[in-house]
Design a protein around this nucleic acid. Structure first.
Lengths: 213, 213
DNA sequence: GTACTAATCACCCTTAAGAGTGATTTCTCT
DNA sequence: AGAGAAATCACTCTTAAGGGTGATTAGTAC
């Protein structure tokens, strides 16, 4: 079987080295290139067409989340695994939202990396958001997942539906007899809870999840 | 039967007089109040709770379209007929979009007014957008309905779907390999053709009309 | 060959949106 | 009584959105 072609993107040279050391232990993987920022990630992906991109998040010029989004838009078949350190798992949802299929912590044993990436390359890891939770449980380091995934309050649902109808914040404030500030505040919390980033995505979400009648 | 309670809103005194003269010919109608701008329209609607509001469009302080929107949001059961002069029928769609149920031209015969308003009050005039067209045909004064209601081009549909997915104009431009200017241009045309005013309403429209799969 | 349209790009301008931060009040749960 | 959540409002700041206007190119229709 052909080895899996892997592109490493991380702005820290020693981080790339660490990953390289791990992957070179196994014949299943071949590192086809290395990049140091999101911009390079896009260019190298286009040039090298790797099977998997290992993408760091915090990088200069263009960060890994933006690069992930761009790459998935242009090359949907390229798989992206976001790599991060153990203490900022909060980015997990953002990464999946941008189109990443996988999520790995830099400070795991090399055997874990191997098992995970191999399964991943063979499509044996359908990395959905549900499974992401399970993975999190297996690494019980206290993460800073705050008040995410709390259910929406009644008021928030009300605001959500008005947003999805196409009303502006001002219109909503007029209808609910509250200030526009408050509407913005509710909307901010709604977007945060649902891991969305703007009212259009919220509208799309509302329709796809049967919240509009 | 109780006469229908009517509120007249128009900034021109002589326009209100003209309407008053017409309506006072008939016992079916009683004029419960008169306003001169959109702000007054809202206040008077709340105070008087008329059956029908006859609403002019071009007015100072707050125009009739905005007032129509506000009133329909707060008092959905109040019927609104937008009144206008014959040469700016282009506002028709906007008025219906804001929630107006009817549309009357100021310079019609009083009998036409009577027949229309009576039928309207009795819910015998389901003033949909389709019927609006028919009414337009009956008043064949050459109106300035431009290139409205043209079908969307393939490219426009493509942009529409990306918008409804929640992508920003910049994201769309990157994916379609065109400039952000062009995306904006397409979007502008799309909104114009569909008589919508922002990307959220477009998203809503897309889902409700089965344009998303 | 000319008229029409789709698609592209550009510039200006105003307002809406959204992030960040923080504060107050009321209610509930324990 | 005290903790926590929900709802409210406020201020700042940056960027996205959208309207208005206009121009070019290429393809199509008649």
């Amino acid at each position: 079987m052909q080895p899996f072609r892997i592109l490493i993107v991380d702005d820290h040279a020693h981080a790339r080295e660490g990953i390289r050391d791990i992957l070179e232990e196994y014949e299943d993987f071949i590192i086809v290139g290395e990049g140091t920022n999101g911009q390079e990630a896009i260019e190298l992906t286009e040039k090298l067409m790797p099977d998997i991109v290992l993408m760091d998040i915090g990088m200069p010029v263009m960060d890994g989340l933006e690069a992930t989004k761009q790459i998935k838009l242009q090359f949907p078949y390229v798989k992206i695994v976001v790599i991060t350190v153990s203490d900022d798992i909060t980015d997990l949802f953002d990464a999946l939202k941008k189109g990443a299929q996988g999520y790995l912590l830099k400070n795991l044993q090399s055997e874990v990396w191997y098992d995970y990436l191999r399964a991943f390359a063979l499509d044996e890891v359908p990395m959905s958001k549900e499974i992401a939770f399970q993975i999190l449980k297996e690494f019980p380091q206290e993460t800073s997942i705050k008040k995410l995934d709390t259910p929406l309050s009644a008021r928030e649902l009300e605001v959500l539906q008005l947003v999805a109808k196409g009303l502006s914040n001002r219109d909503i404030s007029a209808q609910l007899f509250i200030s526009e500030h408050t509407v913005k505040s509710h909307l901010k919390n709604i977007l945060s809870k649902l891991h969305l980033e703007n009212r259009v995505q919220l509208t799309s979400y509302a329709f796809q999840n049967g919240l509009m009648n």
